[in-house]
Computed example of a mutant assay.
Amino acid sequence: MPPSQDDGTTKILKIGTRKSPLAMWQTEWVVDELKKLDKDLMIEIVPMSTTGDKILDKPLPKTGEKSLFTKELEHALALREVHIVVNSMKDMPSTLPDNLTISAVAKRENPADAVVMHPKHRGKRLEDLEDGSVIGTSSLRRIAQLKRKFPHLKYKSVRGNLNTRLRKLDEANDYSALILAAAGLKRMGWNDRISYTLDTEVFMYAAGQGALAVETRADDVETIDLVSKLHDKHTVIQCIAERAFLRTLEGGCSVPTAVRTYIKDDELYMKAGVYSLDGSEALVADMQTSLTPNEEWDRIMTSGDREASCEFASITTSYHFVSPYLLKAAGHLGRDIAMLLVKKGARRVLDEARRQNLMSDSI
């Protein structure tokens, strides 16, 4: 049965979300999953506009703003206007506001980037396009990696929700192709628009790409207990490592960083990289860690290193549903690979990328 409020009436679970079609699809998916757990649950979706939705006249990396797609949602959550908010994990800053926590990370969709060709280029690949062909993307990460492989192409910002960007591709000749997250296209039922997906071994993705995060207040035990049932163990572990990497580097959409994680035979593997804005410089590293108890167990579990445990601390409720050892092991891996890249010069590369991004008139 749905939980009751103090006055004895039935509580309506209010879910905050962005208004975009993809955000609404993601939220409705969460609603359906919650109703599978309790068919009598009363749920109200509360659509909102965020800063990122309103800024359409320039590339997001140039705004200098943080929490572009989450700030308004989290404000409503903190004020108790909604009980939960549903976010794309990659839109979430690596540090959460006080008293807010990620209480569920749902099973990840394909995190790869997808190439969507203009209809006139159907059947082609990026390497088949003529010199100077324009590729639409607003992601510095994608551009930096693509320039290394396809220097003969040009890259131009494209803004708007998925529907808007696809319409811009189809109805004009401004772009030869778009690079979009495969997860969003698949969730919207537009698999047929995917010309092909980029190899994640070469073109790594954004931290958290393809994963959905359900955010709650950290003190809302009743709601946490409800939504925590949507947790996917492997996705939680991967995202903690990726976000710990991002947080250690103090990265975001204004600098090119990329990751690739997977779990095989109880080992968590991670590849991560930082790039110059033009892709001419790349620092990449690989690491792995065991997800079974070993001689490192005591060291990891007793570590007081705040930076090493950064993501463990920012998903405070997850330890109720996923082993604390796994969470800390993942956080350590993300931190350690970031620090390895720092030793190789990552901060210099990223600081220069930030500077060039703010000064450049182009994307």
Score class of each variant (00 low, 15 high):
Pro3Ala: 05
Pro3Leu: 10
Ile15Val: 13
Gln26Phe: 00
Thr27Glu: 10
Val30Gln: 02
Leu41Thr: 08
Pro47Gln: 05
Pro47Phe: 01
Lys54Ala: 09
Pro61Asn: 06
Lys62Ala: 05
His75Ser: 03
Ala78Lys: 15
His83Ala: 04
Val85Tyr: 07
Val85Ile: 11
Thr101Ser: 11
Ala104Gln: 13
Val105Trp: 10
Arg108Cys: 06
Arg108Ser: 14
Val116Ser: 05
Arg125Asn: 13
Asp128Ser: 08
Ser139Asp: 12
Arg141Gln: 14
Ile143Arg: 09
Gln145Leu: 08
His152Gln: 15
Tyr155Ser: 06
Val158Ala: 05
Gly160His: 11
Leu166Thr: 07
Arg167Gly: 02
Leu169Cys: 05
Ser176Asp: 13
Leu178Arg: 05
Leu178Ala: 09
Ala181Gly: 15
Ala181Ser: 14
Leu185Gly: 06
Asp192Asn: 14
Arg193Ala: 03
Phe203Lys: 08
Tyr205Cys: 07
Ala206Asn: 15
Gly208Asp: 09
Gly210Ile: 01
Ala211Ser: 14
Ala211Trp: 08
Leu212Thr: 15
Leu212Lys: 09
Val227Asp: 08
Thr235Asp: 09
Cys239Gly: 04
Glu242Gln: 12
Pro256Gly: 06
Thr257His: 05
Glu281His: 10
Gln288Trp: 07
Thr292Asn: 02
Glu295Gln: 10
Asp298Thr: 05
Thr302Phe: 01
Gly304Trp: 00
Ser309Ala: 12
Tyr319Thr: 03
Pro324Ala: 06
Arg335Ser: 07
Asp336Tyr: 09
Lys344Tyr: 10
Arg348Tyr: 06
Ser360Ala: 11
Ser360Met: 10
Asp361Cys: 08
Ser362Cys: 10
